[in-house]
Structures are given as C-alpha cells and as structure tokens.
C-alpha cells in the first residue's frame, strides 16, 4: 500500500527476519566461547589457569606476606572424601610452594574424579600461578583408594597491593555422574 519504491516484499522481509532470528540463536551459542575468553582475560568467576603456568624466574618479594587459604568441597553427587592437608599457608610472592590434598574414593567401584579450582578475590585469580596441579587432569581412583594429590604454585609478585589473603577453592566432582540426574 505504501508506495515506497525501496519497500521490499513481504516474503523478502520475512526471510531477512528469519535469518536474524537464526543468527540470534547462533549468538546464544557464541556467548559460550566469548564468556570463556572473557573469563580467561579478567579472571571473572575466579577462573585460574587450567594448564601448567610457565613461570620464568621471579625475584621473591620478601617485603610481603600473603596468606593462602585452601577450601575444599565435594559436589553433592560424588561419593568422595576430599580435604586439604593444611588449611592455610603463609607465602612470599615469587617463591615456589607445595601443598598436598587427600582424596578418597568411598564408592565400591572405580571412579574418575575431577577437581575444579576457583580463586577469590577476583583480582588475585590471574596472579595465582599453578605450576603443577592435580586439577589439570582427571584423577582415576580404584574402589576405596585414598591418595595424596599434589599442588605446586607461585604467587606473582605483581599481586595488587591491597590483596593480603588469597582463597583457593576446589570442588571435587565425580565425572562419571556429571550428566545423569540423581
């Protein structure tokens, strides 16, 4: 009715709007890798490195002491016992430290576990460098097995001034039951 010369037909407009809708469906999925990149860059969500950090030698900063606290949680589905062997450590930025955790498979079957780390405060997440961590890969346990899990880390001396405590939290999951309900 509108006698615009540049007006396009109903079907063409329908087509364009459908393409837009399909593109937005794709955009929803595109948010997944975008969020991943965003978290890696900002440490949003307490994200820390999930593969071994390559730390070149850094001169220790003896003027500061940082308290590193360990918190462990077992995901509610998982039949595990999981705890840190020490609750906290006082560390010097730039020096390498070791800590161990203990996990036990309480089930009567072989299990594969996975620990997922998270660091608070967010400002520290990029400065907590894990050199070696049991969370980098799946951990296989035979029925009833208990063993120590190693963590080797270094706190970056560039850690913002106002941070004096870093909390590292691990949640232990049973990977074999992740995608089944109850």
């Amino acid at each position: 009715m509108e006698a615009d010369k540049d007006q396009i037909s109903n079907l063409a407009l329908l087509g364009r709007l459908l393409v837009f809708a399909v593109a937005m469906f794709g955009f929803g999925f595109a948010l997944v890798p975008l969020y991943d990149v965003f978290c890696d860059i900002t440490g949003f969500g307490g994200r820390t490195n999930d593969e071994a950090a390559q730390v070149t030698y850094q001169r220790p900063d003896y003027s500061r002491e940082i308290r590193v606290e360990f918190v462990t949680t077992v995901n509610s589905y998982a039949p595990w016992e999981f705890s840190a062997n020490v609750d906290s450590m006082t560390v010097t930025p730039g020096k390498m430290y070791y800590a161990t955790f203990t996990a036990e498979n309480l089930a009567e079957a072989d299990k594969i576990g996975q620990a997922v780390p998270s660091v608070v405060p967010i400002a520290a997440s990029d400065h907590f460098k894990k050199i070696e961590c049991f969370c980098f890969e799946n951990q296989e346990f035979i029925a009833g097995q208990s063993r120590a899990l190693p963590l080797q880390f270094i706190v970056d001396p560039d850690l913002p001034e106002y941070v004096d405590t870093i909390t590292l939290q691990y949640t232990f999951f049973d990977t074999m039951r992740v995608s089944s309900n109850n």
Partner: peptide, 24 residues
C-alpha cells in the same frame, strides 16, 4: 532465540554429555 539456545544447552548437558554449564 537466545533463550532457545540456552535451554537447548541445558538439554544437551542433561542428555548428550556436553558440559556448557557443568563445572566438572
């Protein structure tokens, strides 16, 4: 469509072994 995408991800997390929202 973004909501449709989000609930589709829930569906595949539950039944098809994906881990969009599963920390493990």
């Amino acid at each position: 469509p973004v909501l449709a995408g989000a609930v589709t991800m829930l569906l595949t997390d539950q039944f098809f072994g994906t881990s969009f929202f599963l920390a493990a």
